[in-house]
Design a protein around this nucleic acid. Structure first.
Lengths: 202, 202
DNA sequence: ATCATTAAGAGACATTGCGTATCTTCACCG
DNA sequence: CGGTGAAGATACGCAATGTCTCTTAATGAT
C-alpha cells in the first residue's frame, strides 16, 4: 500500500470557497432530508465532514445558515425563467411550472420559518426575496410586462399587487400544502383568477 | 386570620375542564409572549402553576399543545363574523377587518408551523381550519354569497378558488409579514383584485 | 362516612441539541 | 521557511425535552 492510499487517508483540509460550498451543500441536503425543525447543526457538520465550530464561525445560528444554504441552492440549481412567447396564459403557466420544481417545498418551508426571524430583524419579505435571488431582478412579472408591451392589457390598470398575484397565490398554496402545486391548481390560478382579472373589459 | 386565608394557602387541586382551560390559557399566553419557537413546555407549566407531566399527559408534544391552545383561543375570543349589509366592497372590507385582529399574528404563526406537521400526518390545510373553527362553517364567503343572492354577480363564474381569494391573499400577507395587515393592504386586496374580478364584464 | 381509584403536582433523571472555548495541525502567503 | 490564521477535534456548561416515580388531593362507589 502506498502512502497516499485512499482508505483512511486523513482527508486534506478544505478552505475558502471550497469549504464554504461543501458546508452549504451539506446544509441543503440535510434541510431537504430533515426539514427545518429537525435539522441539527451537528448533522450538517457531520455530513460536511467537519465540526460545528466551523459552521458557527460562519453563521451565528441555524436560521442564518439555512438562509445561506437556500440562497446557495437556488442560485446553483434554478435556471433562467422561461422567456415569454407571446401568449399571456401560456406564459404564466410556463412560469408557474418553472417555479414549481420539486424542491420548492424545501425553499418555501425555509422562507416560512424565516418569517418569524424577519419580524425580529425588522426586515420585509422583499428583502428576503432579494437576498435569495442574489440581486437578480425577479422575472416573475415578465409575461405581464410582455402583454403590456403587446398592447393586450393596460399598464395603468395593473398595480404591483396584481403583478405579483400569480406568484403570491402560488406561494400561499405551497406554504399551506407543503408540497408542489398540482397542474390543476396552477391552471385554476391562471384561468380563474389572473387572466380574467388582467383581461377584463371595463 | 381565618383558615381559608389567601396568602400561601396550598392551591387546591384543579381537575377536568377547569384544569384543561387553565392549561390552554397558559399555553396561549406564552405563545403570544414568546412565539412558537421560543415557547417552552416548562414555561407553560409554570404559568399554569403545575408541572410538565400534567401537560404531557394531555398532548404528546409542543405541536399538539399549540394546536389545542390556538383552537381554544379562537373559539373563546372570536365573535361572529359581521353580517353582510348589502354592499360587496364594504362587506368584504368589514370581513377582512374582523379577521385582522391583533392576535392573528399568533394564530397564523401557529398555522404556519402546523404546516410542517401536517405534511407528516397527511392532513390537509382544510382539516386544520375545520379543527380550528370547531366545525363551524366558515363565514368568510358570505359577502360573495350575499351578492350572488342579490343578483349582482353570477354564481357560475365564481369558482371555489375565487370565493376564498380574499382570505387567501389575506393569509398570505400575514404569513409573510408576520403581522396584521395595514388598512391600505386590505383596501388594495378588495379594490384592485377581488371586486374587479367578481364584477368584471364579460 | 369510608375506601378505592384516578390523576394532580413535585421532583429526579437521562438525553439531546446548542453555543463557546481550547488545542493541535494544516494550508497558505510573504 | 517561518509566521499566521483557520480547520477540525474535543470538551464543557446550559437549556429544554420527555419519562418516571412518589405523595397526596379529589372523586365516585359502596
Amino acid at each position: 500500500m502506498s502512502l497516499n492510499d485512499a482508505a483512511e487517508a486523513p482527508r486534506q483540509r478544505r478552505r475558502g470557497e471550497d469549504l464554504e460550498n461543501a458546508l452549504l451543500d451539506a446544509a441543503w441536503e440535510e434541510l431537504k432530508l430533515a426539514g427545518f425543525n429537525d435539522l441539527t447543526i451537528d448533522a450538517v457538520a457531520q455530513r460536511a465532514g467537519t465540526s460545528r465550530a466551523v459552521l458557527y464561525r460562519r453563521w451565528p445560528g441555524k436560521m442564518e445558515m439555512v438562509a445561506a444554504a437556500t440562497r446557495h441552492a437556488i442560485l446553483r440549481d434554478r435556471g433562467p425563467a422561461p422567456e415569454p412567447v407571446g401568449d399571456l396564459r401560456e406564459d404564466l403557466l410556463h412560469l408557474l411550472r418553472w417555479a414549481n420544481r420539486s424542491d420548492v417545498r424545501t425553499i418555501i418551508e425555509a422562507t416560512a420559518h424565516l418569517g418569524a426571524y424577519l419580524a425580529q430583524e425588522k426586515l420585509t419579505y422583499r428583502d428576503v426575496r432579494d437576498y435569495f435571488l442574489g440581486g437578480r431582478p425577479p422575472q416573475s412579472h415578465s409575461p405581464i410586462e410582455a402583454a403590456i408591451a403587446r398592447g393586450e392589457i393596460d399598464d395603468a390598470s395593473v398595480s404591483p399587487r396584481v403583478r405579483s398575484l400569480a406568484f403570491d397565490l402560488f406561494r400561499h398554496e405551497v406554504i399551506l400544502n407543503q408540497q408542489p402545486l398540482s397542474e390543476e391548481a396552477m391552471v385554476e390560478i391562471v384561468d380563474d383568477i389572473v387572466v380574467p382579472l388582467l383581461t377584463r373589459k371595463r
